[in-house]
Nucleic acid binder design. Sequence first.
DNA 1: TTAGGGTTAG
Length: 578
Amino acid sequence: MHACTVMTTSLRNIIARHNPVALIDSSLCNSNCNASVALARVRQIHAHLLVQGLLYDSLLFHRFIASVALLSANDNGISSTSSHHHHLLLLLYSHRLLDHSPHPPNAFVLNSLIRAHSKVPDLENAFRFYRRLLRSLSPDRFTFTFLVSACARGSTSTTAGAAVHAAALRRGFASNPHVHSALIRMYVEFGLPNAARLIYAEVQNPDIVSRTAMLGALAAAGEIDLARELFDCMPSRDPIAWNAMIAGYSQLGRSKEALELFSSMQSEGLRVSEATLVSVLSACAHMGALDQGKWVHAYMKRNMLHVTVMLGTALVEMYSKCGDVERAMDVFWRMQEKNVYTWSSAMSGLVINGAGNECLGLFGLMKDHGVPPNGVTFVSVLRGCSVAGLVEEGRRHFDSMRDQYGIEPWHEHYGCMVDLYGRAGRLDDAVDFINSMPIEPHAGAWGALLNACKIHRSIELGEYAMKKMVEIESTNDGAYVLLSNIYAESRMWGGVNDVRESMKAKGVKKEPGCSVIEVDGEIHEFFVGDKSHPRYREIEVMLQVMSKRLRLAGYTAKTKESGCSNAAINSWAPQLKS
DNA sequence: TTAGGGTTAG
């Protein structure tokens, strides 16, 4: 090890004597090392530059500062707490270099520092360097690109972003293509897609990047059909534009169109990137398209694509949502690197497939691996306890959220606790829990109680929960259906009628249920009462056969909301083919 | 010497 170090060091010295810039580049910028190794190299190079007297060269010094700052913006393995710590140390190092620099900073250095802080994001420091720049220099197109992206990533209020936008306008940089697209992105991030539209309209002939950013804005606003028009009119489309469109469909639940677009993308022979596959897998997960999902997985293997954390997580998600929890866990265990998303997806996959104890077991392992859980993880933990009927353990986990992990429980967690008590038949505890909540109970908490009342046939409490729920969310069709079912199960037909009347009076409509399956890559949708499928007659006959077989096997249908899962329907799908 | 758009979990 020693000999090796000595050799590389002397080699570097030789290079450095001739070209110190090459040393900085090759050791820092072009290397793929983690933050802690990078920090050690920074110290080495700093010492070297100092000893050689090279820091008197202002260009070189500035380049060194910029490299150190930008090194911290590389997100190589930033997943762990310790690497995050080293990234911060790199940033601090760049601050100190600037503070002790004998040369007045130029725009390049300050821009680089703003950029580095835009990635953390650390708005306070980004603006500190911006103000420093304003003192003696003029901000340029780079400054605004970085500052806008800092605001997009790190702003909780829109004020700072709007101020930067105003400054960019005043200085004539708002129509620079880079600043322009960053501004669109920023307003989308602020939840102001209409502001993004105004900015988009201000430029005569936007380039592909601004068009793609606008595509994202329209999808964010739910205007997916307008987005499609924009997409179709684009003079050229690169893989990122395709991804934006596919992701838009996927996020809005228009999975069928997402998959259709994916196949058009393929027929145009375009390169398929990780982002595309993640969106496609997410669309498959959403609609339970196991065959398509398997095809994507096979595609990845065929093309020897590396299963990154994101792709692996998307695969786990897809398999478990399609009901194939064995394959989901197989992918999970094979993954080299797992983050909190991966663990949470696997846990939720187990719990939605009824494996509460396994979900809790995985939670234990996750903690053993030193991955800190977050709020989403705890939703699965609490649901796991609910499924497994572990009331006290659930309570302990709930309390540990705040006490051990500093996570303030969300409405969802309170809802899970009500569900936990309610399912276990402890309706009084559920009510006490709601009454002792430090935040105003949301409709979901009362909904969980209502559901528990349905399971345990508690009519009076159910009526009360319903009343509370309607007070908060008067148009929640699910609540009416649940209460109606409570009455129906107790053969209180008058109550059923009352519910129907009050739904009519309040204008509440039951959304038609929809089921989607995929056979041989073709997507079939069925709405309640919908007879438009070309093979409707055959399907109806098959359903009768299936119900008969199920009854013979001892299955009795419960109530309407306990429908067949997509996975169960998919297992019958082959019979539809013939 | 520094840039912008798409991508995961309840």
